[in-house]
């Protein structure tokens, strides 16, 4: 299977010149603007096909098309270059000072901005991220989530599952409830009765 290409597909962003190229989770082990990219992408920047900076997310790479070029005409070229570049993950240089927790933080941010966040907000709840440390996330459930016996576990499970999809090396999620101080519990323990 070494000949098969890295699966990617483009999604639109608010800026028509920028496309979010969705890549498999874990392809690049960092987020942010890399300090160096492999030759195929560099060549495109040199030729003016791409402009601006590459932005790496937990499961995507944002690229901006250059002036005088369009995605419709030059897109296929960019796709091939990106797939070639992703096939050599070692040639991508992370931003200076990047840590794994940065990647985890980005993953958490995406989850909060996405489906799980919508779910919580839809029910009038709030998730506050307290700490992200060495692969473990501590959050505080507030708003309508606080004090609701049913919500706690569901929200935790969904949150954790979603974060894990973006960051497979997640060690765990610790949840606390605001206003009603209880023993914080790791998701792995049996739930205490209310």
């Amino acid at each position: 299977m070494s000949e098969s290409l890295v699966p990617v597909h483009p999604e639109a962003t608010d800026d028509p010149a920028v496309l979010r190229w969705v890549v498999p989770v874990g392809t690049l082990g960092f987020v942010g603007e890399p300090s160096g990219v492999p030759a195929p992408l560099q060549d495109l920047y040199a030729a003016g096909v791409l402009t601006g900076s590459v932005v790496v997310e937990p499961a995507a790479v944002l690229l901006q098309i250059g002036d005088g070029h369009s995605w419709r005409t030059d897109g296929p070229l960019v796709r091939r270059a990106l797939q070639a570049a992703l096939a050599r993950p070692g040639e991508w240089q992370p931003p200076t000072g990047a840590t794994d927790d940065d990647l985890l933080r980005a993953a958490v941010d995406e989850v909060l901005a996405g489906e799980v966040g919508d779910f919580v907000r839809g029910h009038g709840g709030v998730i506050d991220v307290l700490t992200i440390d060495d692969g473990e996330v501590t959050v505080e459930l507030g708003g309508a989530c606080a004090g609701c016996p049913a919500s706690g576990l569901t929200v935790q499970q969904r949150f954790e599952a979603a974060v894990r999809r973006h960051y497979p090396r997640l060690r765990g999620v610790v949840a606390r409830e605001a206003q009603a101080p209880r023993r914080s519990r790791l998701i792995q323990l049996l739930p205490t009765r209310h």
Binding site: E3, S4, L5, V6, P7, V8, H9, P10, A12, P16, L19, V22, V23, P24, W71, R72, G75, P76, R79, R80, Q83
Partner: peptide, 25 residues
Amino acid sequence: WPAPALPPPAEPAEVISWIESVLTT
């Protein structure tokens, strides 16, 4: 109706990778 900025690839290996990516997402 919105349209993708870039149509999916036509070449067999490329379209396989496109399909894989879409299904995973």
